[in-house]
């Protein structure tokens, strides 16, 4: 079984390396794909993000990272806070997650 696993892994890695090569070989001239967010159809926070995306992509990228981090931290704290008050013993065992 272990052998199948490693065989599969190697195959997958090989695939990952080969894919760019095949894509390159296909080599037809492909045009860039540009997306314009349709701000006419949305309101509120969706409109804000799509406006930002349309006008300033770099800013929206930085913003996306910062906001994701902020929300991740925020949710982490909130949930820890709530779970600690549930009365369960959360310290007596190892948490492995990623």
């Amino acid at each position: 079984m272990q052998r199948i696993y490693h065989w599969g892994k190697n195959l997958l890695m090989g695939l990952a390396i080969m894919l760019p090569a095949t894509a390159w070989a296909a080599g037809e001239k492909a045009t860039n794909i540009v997306v314009v967010a349709d701000t006419r159809r949305v309101t509120g926070i969706l409109k804000y993000f799509s406006d930002l995306y349309n006008t300033n992509v770099v800013m929206s990228a930085v913003w996306a990272v910062v906001l994701t981090v902020a929300i991740g931290c925020f949710l982490g704290f909130i949930m820890d806070f709530i779970m600690e008050r549930s009365g369960l013993d959360l310290h007596s065992r190892k948490i492995i997650e990623h």
């Binding site: 981090v69 991740g72 931290c73």
Partner: peptide, 9 residues
């Protein structure tokens, strides 16, 4: 990215 922040915290 967000979820790994949660687990890192």
């Amino acid at each position: 990215a967000g979820k790994s922040m949660i687990s890192t915290i």
